[in-house]
Every structure is written in structure tokens, then in C-alpha cells.
């Protein structure tokens, strides 16, 4: 497909889409959002790229093999269940740490966020595996 309008708009849309996907990921703990939607958004950004240019261009832009990203995401999600075991809680119990920020104040970082990051990558990886595989069939 060679639509100049789509190509140009994709070029401008792409960075905000990725940033927005990360925003959705981070806001997910207290508000609607989370790893699943975030990953879907990021995946759609690359799918849009694949539509506007070509699947091989999108693969190049993605740099990694989507299957590696899926495996990495699964690993992150799995590992996020382990920290609570050290404080003798059940697997996957939400555990929180307070990280002091250099400018003052503290940041709450918890295992649910790590789990969500894992989900983000799994969804991104799976979506792109499917989109790239189907796109290359043509």
C-alpha cells in the first residue's frame, strides 16, 4: 500500500502512540489502563507502521524478533511473583517498595507494576507475531 497521506500521518502518529501506550501502562494501577491495553496500543502502532510502509519495514523498525519479546515478557511476569515469597507470602502477592527520589519524595514501586510490564511485552510480542505472520502471507 502506498498512500502518501497514511505514510505521512503515520510518521507523526507513531511516537505519540508509543508514548501513550507507556502512559496507559503506568496509569493502570489506579485508573483504567494497564499492561494489556498498553501493549495493544504499542502493537497497533507497529501494525499501523506495517500497513503504511511494509511488514519488512515494520520488522526493521521493531528491531527485535517479536517472539523474543513475548518470552521476555513472560519471564518478567513470572519473576514478579517471586519477591513476596521472601516475606513468606503466597506466590504473586502484591509487594511494594518505597524508592526515594533524588528530588525528594518517594515513589511506590510494586510487583503488580512489574507484572504489568511483563503483560505489556507479552501482548506486544504476540500481537506483532500474528500481524507480521499474516501480513507476510500476501
Amino acid at each position: 500500500m502506498t498512500s502518501i497521506i497514511l505514510r505521512t500521518s503515520t510518521r507523526y502518529m507513531f511516537p505519540p502512540l508509543i508514548v501513550f501506550s507507556v502512559y496507559l501502562l503506568l496509569r493502570g494501577h489506579h485508573f483504567p489502563g494497564g499492561g494489556f491495553v498498553g501493549g495493544l496500543f504499542a502493537g497497533s502502532a507497529f501494525a499501523l507502521y506495517a500497513l503504511a510502509y511494509s511488514v519488512s519495514d515494520a520488522r526493521k523498525a521493531f528491531r527485535q524478533d517479536p517472539r523474543d519479546i513475548t518470552a521476555g515478557g513472560l519471564a518478567i511476569a513470572l519473576l514478579s511473583g517471586i519477591p513476596p515469597l521472601f516475606s513468606s507470602h503466597a506466590f504473586l502477592t502484591g509487594t511494594w517498595w518505597e524508592v526515594p527520589l533524588p528530588m525528594g519524595g518517594v515513589l511506590d514501586v510494586g510487583t503488580p507494576l512489574i507484572f504489568d510490564v511483563g503483560v505489556y511485552f507479552v501482548v506486544l510480542g504476540v500481537l506483532l507475531t500474528v500481524v507480521f505472520a499474516l501480513g507476510e502471507e500476501e
Partner: peptide, 16 residues
């Protein structure tokens, strides 16, 4: 919905 999304995607590839 997520499950049926994944399964439908697989079924599409299989049928193709």
C-alpha cells in the same frame, strides 16, 4: 475476550 481473540487469530491462520 482475550482468549477468544487469540484463538480466533490462530483459527484464521489455520484456515488460511
Amino acid at each position: 475476550i482475550v482468549i477468544s481473540f487469540a484463538v480466533t487469530a490462530f483459527a484464521l491462520v489455520l484456515f488460511l
